[in-house]
Amino acid sequence: MVRFLARRLLHFVLTITAASFLLFAVTEFSPGDVASKILGPYAVDTQVEMLRQRLKLNDPLPIRYIRWIGTLLGIVENPLGDSSTGLGLVDPRGNRYFGNLGYSLMLKEPVIDVLSDRLGYTLLLAFWAVVFIVPLSITMGVVAGMNEGRLIDRLISMTAVVLTSLPEFVVSVGLLLVGVAWLGILPGTSPMNLGSKWSIGTQLFLPVTVLVIASASYVSRIVRASVVDTLRRPYVRTALLKGLPRWQITIHHVLRNAMIPPITVILLQINWLLTGVVVVEAIFAYPGVGSLLLQAGLYGDIYLVQALSLLALSVAVGTQLIGDLCYMALDPKIKVA
């Protein structure tokens, strides 16, 4: 177990390092000079060149990447906070601390403060979505798989296929028409205002519902296919021939083995919920990470885009590690030596 975890953690670090370097290179070589993006389109060439020299942007890419990582780890001071640059960027924690992701050029605030405000709302949205997605998709998939070819299987499968094929913005508009325009019982936006006449739960209802519809219908199809495949295994047929109750076969023989493939899909949905729900957050004006990434990209906020992309990479690689641990718990035949 210890050796397995050590290998997976080493793989995690190497993957994050390689991916972060590619991320840094892509953002650094995106259209427009970094100094020009910081100063804006109306800066003169002398100002751009002066800032480029103070930030040492003429150094080779590997050196700039190491300096970026050093700033993130708190080893190197962030030059953006230096008063000599004239940018007016101030961080109350100073220019050297662990987790220093730079400054948001759009909001003129430290990136870590901007993320802390938005990440909490995204985690709240993802939590309630997962609370409904996991049991609903597993229940639908197991019921459909255990009744392969029957009427209930066809109804669940047809419903799941139809809902999966609908884009998120179509589902969002449909729910807005019903809940807001026709019935008038739900808010049209979800800004998460405590002083609003709508409760927090009411403001969460529409975005959570859209995410559940978009994800649970897809995951249930994967669960159904896995259950159908597991039911055809010899050990399930043996259990049936022994006369074991159907519920006992489902719980002890089918569920545990059938859940191995869907685990990967469920973890991918968690990654999507944390960093990829741009459309849903934009439609409902939800103050999460997804809408923040869209705003940062449109504004050209390079440091905020780097931070959000690095967060997405960390979540993606971290879910792989969690998936390996889940495989071990579900299937004792997986060797970790």
Rank of each mutant, 00 (worst) to 15 (best):
L292P: 01
S165W: 02
N193Y: 10
P245F: 08
N257I: 01
T275G: 01
S30N: 05
G70E: 05
A216E: 04
L105N: 11
I156M: 08
A160D: 09
P207Y: 00
D82Y: 01
V114N: 03
V278G: 00
T17A: 14
L206R: 05
N257L: 00
S309V: 10
T71G: 13
G86C: 12
T159G: 12
D324H: 13
L22N: 10
M50S: 10
Y327G: 02
L163F: 05
P31A: 12
Y235P: 05
C326G: 14
T27F: 05
W128F: 13
M146P: 03
I133Q: 03
A312K: 02
V236L: 03
V143K: 12
L155K: 10
L268F: 09
E49S: 13
W128D: 09
M1T: 08
L231F: 03
I152Y: 04
L9K: 07
I75Q: 06
L241S: 15
I185G: 14
A129F: 03
L163A: 10
I263D: 00
S196H: 11
L136K: 11
A285S: 02
L321M: 14
T202D: 07
K197R: 15
D59N: 01
L9F: 14
K197N: 15
L87C: 08
T46K: 09
L105F: 09
Y235K: 11
D59I: 00
V173M: 13
T71F: 01
L183Y: 09
S215C: 12
L57E: 00
K197H: 14
M106T: 01
Y103V: 11
G40H: 13
S20N: 15
F29Q: 10
Q306L: 10
I283D: 00
L125F: 03
P261V: 06
L176P: 01
K242Q: 13
I334A: 15
H253C: 04
L73T: 04
Q53R: 08
I266D: 07
V162T: 13
P62T: 12
T71I: 12
S137R: 08
A35R: 02
S199T: 12
P31Q: 11
T275P: 04
L73A: 09
V2P: 02
T71Q: 15
R150A: 06
L177C: 08
Q269C: 07
R224K: 09
V162H: 06
L57F: 00
Q306D: 05
L292N: 02
Y303G: 00
M146Q: 06
L304Y: 02
